[in-house]
């Protein structure tokens, strides 16, 4: 099976997909009873909307300037990350670089045996309002301001990190906490949440 290739930290080739939207069913029975329009359309497959992938993320003053590539999930359902800690993965089914809603999730290894420490080690202590710039595949740049930096036990990473609804925000994720050499894993995820700083920068 093709999915068997999505193991470990191997980056996944980019493929355009349709970002999931929220279910919409706003028509009410009362509306129908009042004779208001019920949506009717040909039952044909609409062409997929192409997402705009983020390709670069920079953190001002922290020497963080990394390439971003689209990633998916591995066989066990974990988010795949590029093996090189100086490349971040964009969870390709999170919001895209042009999104109006939901979270755009970018994550990178904090370190690796092969490459050593990665740039994302420096996002773990960002002050509130620190500036983050994301560049999209179409060249558009979008500036964000840090709202919060939180640590979660990895097993308790909250679903809101991957929330596809609500006001748009950027989430950067890496590892922190203590390290277990037996499993070669950290205890925590560090989650930086940032809000758009009022349009493109």
């Amino acid at each position: 099976m093709a999915v068997a290739a999505l193991t470990g930290c191997a980056p996944v080739a980019a493929a355009p997909v349709t970002p999931a939207a929220t279910p919409s069913s706003t028509t009410s029975a009362t509306a129908a009873a009042r004779g208001e329009d019920i949506p009717v359309a040909a039952a044909t497959l609409a062409p997929p909307e192409e997402p705009v992938p983020p390709v670069r993320v920079q953190v001002a003053g922290r020497d963080v300037d990394v390439t971003v590539v689209p990633v998916g999930v591995d066989r066990r359902g974990a988010m795949v990350l590029p093996e090189d800690p100086s490349v971040a993965g964009w969870y390709r089914w999170s919001s895209d670089a042009d999104a109006a809603r939901g979270t755009t999730v970018l994550a990178a290894h904090v370190d690796s045996l092969r490459w050593g420490l990665g740039p994302f080690v420096r996002i773990r202590d960002l002050p509130d309002d620190a500036e983050i710039v994301v560049t999209a595949d179409d060249g558009a740049r979008r500036t964000y301001r840090v709202d919060s930096t939180e640590r979660f036990r990895k097993a308790a990473l909250p679903d809101r990190v991957f929330d596809r609804t609500g006001a748009h925000r950027l989430v950067l994720v890496t590892c922190g906490g203590t390290f277990d050499p037996a499993t070669r894993t950290y205890s925590d995820n560090v989650v930086v949440t940032a809000r758009p700083a009022g349009g493109s920068g």
Binding site: H109, S112, V161, T174, C175, F179
Partner: peptide, 18 residues
Amino acid sequence: GGNPNGINSGTAGLAAEG
């Protein structure tokens, strides 16, 4: 859409805290 069940974002122990 379901969410990934985790993000393992480090493998070397070079950046352990505490």
